[in-house]
Nucleic acid binder design. Sequence first.
DNA 1: CGATCAATTGACACGGCTCAAGGGGTGTGG
DNA 2: CCACACCCCTTGAGCCGTGTCAATTGATCG
Lengths: 233, 233
Amino acid sequence: MEHGQAHEHSIERELECVSQVPIFQRLSADQMMSVAQVTRPIHAEKGGTVFSTGEVSQTLYIVNQGQVRLYHLAEDGREQVLRVLNPGDFIGEIALFTDEIHSSYAEATKTTELCTISRSALTALIKKLPPLSMALLGALADRLKVAERQATLLAIPDALPRLAGYLRELSGHTAGTVDLPMSKQDLAAYLGMTPESLSRKLRQLVTAGIIETIGRRQVKITDATKLGDVAPA
Amino acid sequence: MEHGQAHEHSIERELECVSQVPIFQRLSADQMMSVAQVTRPIHAEKGGTVFSTGEVSQTLYIVNQGQVRLYHLAEDGREQVLRVLNPGDFIGEIALFTDEIHSSYAEATKTTELCTISRSALTALIKKLPPLSMALLGALADRLKVAERQATLLAIPDALPRLAGYLRELSGHTAGTVDLPMSKQDLAAYLGMTPESLSRKLRQLVTAGIIETIGRRQVKITDATKLGDVAPA
DNA sequence: CGATCAATTGACACGGCTCAAGGGGTGTGG
DNA sequence: CCACACCCCTTGAGCCGTGTCAATTGATCG
């Protein structure tokens, strides 16, 4: 709030957020400025809620730093993880086009910085910046691909090929070390099985010489070929 | 190919296709004309293939009349239905933004009319017609919502609530008669169970007085409340 | 260094898949 | 219009896999 440059200074934080995010990456400096002007930053502490079920949303949330966990809460208290958002990922795009209440909770798993854009501001931006529509469409198409893959995986009745298929996706079909994007109990829910089953199936893959577990959140694929044999299609 | 009006006449068919499709619905007559000019119609007989696995696709397919079944072919020969496309639905949007080969088969279940748009033509259109981007984004967001719902459903370990949840979605949470979008064996695969299990669970719902089966492809929800009790969340 | 929660491991029961056989509806050809 | 055949759907019996419940180990954080 210093003299003269007060206004420009006030959007520095917004600009930083915008420049970090892939969907805005290809925009020119001018265009980014337009985006930054309608952006509002949000901060969430670890364990804090970004939004809850039942809230009406007309806002696009973009993760800048940190991590956000999106999950359903079943009536029996079990949490079903839908998705984990890392920096650059966004959520709320559905609510932007269809009036709807949130059907899930969004919780920060660490100290997190987000930026938000209201529906009206975004629609105005889209009309003004064609490259932005392309970027958004691309991002949405990617999301769709992932969601459909997950649906295909989950339709597999047996737990072992289901897990193997997931690991193969995660590793990009090649050997190497991969980070699990969430805790194992969350991963179990994500894959439609219990933590116990996940543990057993992982062990089974280790025994078969296909993977190695490194620490708590890493898995090393040692035999991508065998993994492909266990996984479907 | 008659004299004079030859050119205009040649895109009549394309224009008909474009005007039928929801994502183009809100465009003005002029704008529809622009779209029709880059559209190419395709015809498929019942049982015919629209595209196969392994083909590179840079084309958006929009179903005008008929029905198209999208499915994976597992190595054991089992077919996993991903989606059934009715008039107005489209496929190929993923391939428009990420170079990729098709991972599924598309087969016409009846005599079907489609229209296609190439990637380059569509990107050009988007730049020219902002309303089109909004329509596309909205349609993609809807698709995403459906895919995420399906993933949530499939993560349910027990078959009965999984089926109940599906029926509830299909009926729009109210009582009434709904058409099944595919055969029961396809539906079983879609829901991640065997045809036998599906048959038994349907019977179970009938016995409980929750639904009635009408013919082979219709289900009547008689007690939406009880259905909600069986279904999750 | 202790407390707390995640992850593992074991025993057991139940649900769903597998394999096999019997109707019922649908679409075809005569 | 009828009859046949094919395929989809249904129904039954047995077994394997996975969820459930419970206890132990292990790791991470204050």
